[in-house]
Amino acid sequence: MITYTWRTTLADNEVKDVESLLEEAVEYDAEAGFSTATPTTAGRGEVRHLLVSIAPPGERGSVALDRLPDVPVVAYLRLDVRGEVADVQLVVRPEFRSHGIATLLAELLDEQPTGWSSVEGVRRLRAWAHGAHPAAERMARRFGARVDHALFKTLRFIGGSRPFAGDDVGAAVEPAPDGPAEMVEGHLAGIAPGEREVLARGRTRLATPAGSVLVGVDEKDPARQPACIALDPAGVPAGDVRALLTTALLRVQADGARVAQMYVDALSEAFVGASRGLGFQHDQSDVLYLRPL
């Protein structure tokens, strides 16, 4: 029913086909914040592209599939290979989801000599599922992947009729033109464009002797768009995490924000505890899966 083709580089028409798929998926997944892919971005290692095609309507073995459009690419997989580890990004065109395309592709890649075994040296696959996609959870169970890490996207409503109050510890204000650093390797590569826009607002650093936090609000509409708070708890004493976050909330509230968004490292007890204590609410989980081959 489906076939796949590996590419080390994409031809211009293939880039166009993949970008069309991704644009459709981004629009469809905007509210859920599911993962996307980055076909034209440089990788950390050797990048390979997998283009997945399906038989023409009338030859797909399913009435439901035969009703779907005749398109050149129904799924796209990006593989970033570094030694024994490869980072995977996979996006299925929205119309073709819930028809077993991803599951069948995974089976073929396991079974066929042109699948994973054709990628020399790879022993483990890493894949982020942004928004804890239910299909990703099912695929992980079926193919023996385990959760290796997770980040919580959290929200804190502030200002207006529910102002946040706390003690400002005082901080030096510095520009942070590079924006937030990646908290866990690979997390930002496939993040949804809407989430990337929020993170891009974090261009101001509030620095204290204990550590620093990046903050920023939307310049045009700070009350309607989420503000960014970005803290990497590494190296910050556990007792100082809450104070840093309090200062960050007071700053974005003063700048007009009515909601702040922050990613929390699920493995950091101090970070999770401080964020909950300050009223940050869980919105979604981004999960990193690791699968041995």
Rank of each mutant, 00 (worst) to 15 (best):
W6E: 11
G186D: 08
P56L: 00
L245A: 11
Q225H: 12
D12Y: 09
I2T: 01
V264Q: 07
A136D: 06
I54G: 01
A210H: 09
V217E: 08
S62R: 06
A260K: 05
L77K: 10
S285P: 00
G211E: 10
P57N: 08
S53G: 14
P193A: 10
Q112H: 11
L278G: 06
R196E: 08
L267W: 02
D232H: 05
Q281P: 00
R224W: 12
T246D: 08
S35M: 05
L278T: 13
A200M: 01
H133N: 14
A176Q: 02
T204A: 07
A132R: 05
D29S: 08
R7A: 15
S98P: 01
L109C: 07
L206F: 09
W116P: 01
S275D: 01
T5Q: 14
K16Q: 14
D286R: 05
A102D: 04
R141N: 13
E107S: 12
G45W: 12
A274I: 04
V26M: 07
L50I: 10
L21A: 13
G166C: 03
E219W: 04
P292W: 12
D232K: 00
R138A: 15
R242S: 15
A171Q: 06
K16W: 07
T246G: 11
I2H: 00
T204H: 04
G186C: 03
T3Y: 06
A266F: 00
H282S: 04
P69D: 07
T208K: 03
